[in-house]
């Protein structure tokens, strides 16, 4: 039997199961309501992405306003209204008046750039860059801030979380601080941080440190609390000392939850950073899209949005991979 063909088939039909259990799933008569019978069909997912791209392309490129029309309309708009505001309704009116323009052609490079323009912008950004920095440099600037902030958050948060799960004194000491600060969105600290540290790296890394800290503390603490008492008992009965119980039993037991917390922190940090860069920065993806918007370069904005999304997905994938490598025992205790 051709195993490649079998594998290909199981990929395309989307079943996560191999031959035997796949057969069992196929023979199920009740599938509506059975969560395990709902699998992902790769072909359908690919089709959904393609449809989305085609709609985007059609709306902007095929049926979009003819080149130069928006500028024309804008100029007409300026002469009509003395404040020189660019208004969508005027554009609509102008479009209606023009026999070459249909009413549906409302997307233009000022509102939504076409995929082709976005691809051109990617090329432009990666060679010429935006404000002295290439797209890669902006991406790396953002990524570096996230990684440093996250690392600091892990380094401080994990020991505090472990301590809170192990000692009543330390739990009581840190509980009000953690519970008090946790509900505050990290972005609320941005004004203070800018006053204290300026708009440089320190303020951003501090912000991300705070974003990660509470999540890491809570993750590490719940990791300790999830340790089965019998495992701790077993370790003591086998002659382990307190430090040995901590490093050989509690820490490995808490590792899955700590890694989950790292993954969540990474997502939160990434989101927080982009917002923080919008407020104040001279490089980074958040800075790039905000600066581009001011210059009405929507193609650059869309490139920035896509890169932010792709990086978010990639970071999550890396963390998932790390989890399967570092904690193969997860959920099997």
């Amino acid at each position: 039997m051709s195993t490649l063909r079998q594998r290909l088939f199981s990929r395309l039909s989307g079943s996560r199961f191999r031959t035997t259990s796949q057969g069992a799933t196929q023979r199920k008569t009740v599938t509506f309501g059975d969560g395990s019978a709902v699998s992902s069909k790769v072909l359908i997912s690919v089709a959904s992405v393609l449809v989305l791209l085609v709609i985007w392309w059609a709306a902007t490129h095929k049926w979009g306003l003819p080149d130069g029309f928006a500028e024309q309309a804008e100029r007409a708009d300026r002469t009509e209204s003395p404040e020189g505001r660019f208004s969508e309704t005027k554009l609509v009116r102008a479009c209606k008046a023009d026999p070459d323009c249909s009413y549906s052609q409302l997307f233009n490079h000022r509102t939504l750039p076409s995929p082709v323009n976005v691809l051109k912008a990617v090329n432009e950004l990666s060679t010429d860059g935006w404000r002295q920095n290439t797209l890669q440099a902006h991406t790396w600037a953002s990524l570096e801030r996230v990684l440093i902030g996250l690392l600091l958050g892990v380094a401080v948060g994990v020991p505090i979380g472990l301590a809170m799960g192990l000692s009543s004194v330390l739990k009581s000491l840190f509980d009000p601080i953690v519970e008090g600060f946790r509900p505050i969105p990290p972005l609320a600290f941005v004004p203070l941080l800018i006053i204290w540290f300026g708009i440089g790296e320190t303020s951003k890394v501090t912000l991300l440190f705070f974003a990660a800290l509470w999540i890491m503390i809570i993750g590490a603490r719940s990791g300790v609390l999830s340790v089965q008492l019998s495992k701790v008992h077993a370790a003591y009965s086998l002659g382990a000392s307190r430090p040995q119980v901590l490093t050989r039993v509690i820490l490995p037991n808490a590792l899955p939850e700590i890694l989950t917390a790292v993954r969540v922190s990474l997502g939160v940090c990434w989101g927080t950073l982009v917002a923080a860069e919008i407020v104040a920065a001279t490089e980074g993806l958040g800075f790039m899209i905000w600066d581009a918007q001011k210059k009405l370069r929507m193609d650059v904005v869309v490139v920035g949005i896509i890169v932010i999304g792709v990086m978010g997905v990639l970071l999550d994938l890396v963390m998932r991979k790390l989890e399967t490598l570092l904690i193969p025992w997860r959920g099997k205790g």
Partner: peptide, 12 residues
Amino acid sequence: GMVFQQGALFEW
């Protein structure tokens, strides 16, 4: 020495 109902083995 102790032996527990669920083994209490160290799965890592």
